[in-house]
Write a protein that binds this DNA or RNA. Structure first.
Lengths: 211, 211
DNA sequence: CAAAAATTTGACCGAATGGACAAACGTTAG
DNA sequence: CTAACGTTTGTCCATTCGGTCAAATTTTTG
């Protein structure tokens, strides 16, 4: 006998599906127009429902955005978490770069949503940056430092090295228009990610070979 | 006798000053909130004047933004224009990186304004990207290719190399919050630019040494 | 100084936006 | 079948926003 107490309502099948649909639509809209630039009507239309219907599933615009952002961070931190102490350091770094570049290619909207938030001064996620993110980066910086002490990697600042990897890879999602415009119609096609991968792997691996 | 013909009104001293004041305020507001996120009232207040007064100097919000952006591109292209064929290639690249990093430090608002525009798909400046910018980058890519042919620089894709320099340097303006959060109160101070410069110069110079 | 030109602002307007609400419509368990 | 619950939408509202206008004030010029 399951007694339905007053407090925590259960989530319906439809609710789960529709919330997912809304978040997908919201990602599309928020990532291209930013938080203020996006309108609830736009999101509702992209999700194929009326605005009041959307507001039945989320408390409001902010609620949608918050939900999206907190999910995003999980996805975003995943590749760095995989950076492991086992295996050849330079190989490990190379595959990290490759993973990040693949994410920029396959999930550009997530990258842009994140970038938008950063540009605005991260009003909604500063705590997470100073907490989870900082902890993880500090931890991985320590791993890299170990590699340097062992003479496997050239000595340099591990934190700024991580920044450099983030910057160069996310650039292909965040500045996609610019990349395409500069490369032109010929070289700006799908091949650009392969070219970028080659260049970046060479740069980082050669640049970090111990000497 | 100067006959005042009907067409091109002259620009007053006050007009020049006030327009400058407005653009300065607009840069502040647009760069942190994006185009849609910024309001004319905000800009007017930041410029210390009433909204109608501001609209006396500019046709409207879009006009202010357009003026700002076209000025910006000039400033933005300047360092790359200086990348010259004379002198040692690696030294030349090193000082380009240093200049770009100094710009990220001294003009972060300009960088963010630009990034905002890119994230939104560059609706207002795509022509300039495909024109001026592409031409300049193609030209400099050719210079770098020359260095590679001469065996002065390791062979790699010059366009993506330029992207990598842009990405890593502008990162310190665009993702400033993140950088500070991760570095923490101790290492996130003014010294971060020096640390970044050291890391980046090492990375690019060692990564591009011919082998 | 006074007329003309330039500058400034309070008040106002229409459109867009985030959100509330009650009524209508579907679905499902007993 | 029907009552209860879940879902959907048309309509409405308060606020915000970009922009206008005429009147008031200040600056420039002859």
């Amino acid at each position: 006998m399951t007694v339905q107490t007053a407090a925590p309502r259960r989530r319906t099948r439809i609710q789960i599906e529709k919330r997912e649909l809304i978040l997908e639509a919201a990602l599309e809209v928020f990532s291209t127009h930013g938080y203020r630039g996006a309108t609830v009507d736009q999101i509702a239309e992209a999700a194929g429902m009326s605005k009041p219907n959307l507001l039945y599933y989320f408390k409001g615009k902010e609620d949608i955005h918050t939900t999206l952002i907190s999910r995003l961070l999980e996805t975003w931190l995943a590749p760095l978490k995989e950076l492991d102490d086992i295996g050849d350091p330079l190989t490990e770094l190379r595959s990290y770069i490759r993973r990040k570049l693949e994410m920029a290619r396959d999930y550009p909207r997530e990258s842009r949503l994140f970038a938008n938030e950063m540009l605005q001064g991260a009003p909604r996620i500063t705590p997470m940056l100073e907490g989870e993110l900082k902890t993880l980066v500090d931890e991985k910086a320590e791993v890299i430092k170990g590699w340097m002490r062992a003479g496997k990697v050239a000595r340099t600042d591990p934190w700024h090295l991580i920044f450099a990897i983030w910057a160069t890879t996310q650039h292909y999602a965040d500045f996609d228009v610019q990349v395409r415009a500069v490369l032109g119609p010929d070289r700006g096609g799908d091949g650009r990610f392969e070219d970028a991968a080659r260049m970046l792997e060479q740069l980082f691996v050669d640049g970090l070979k111990p000497r």
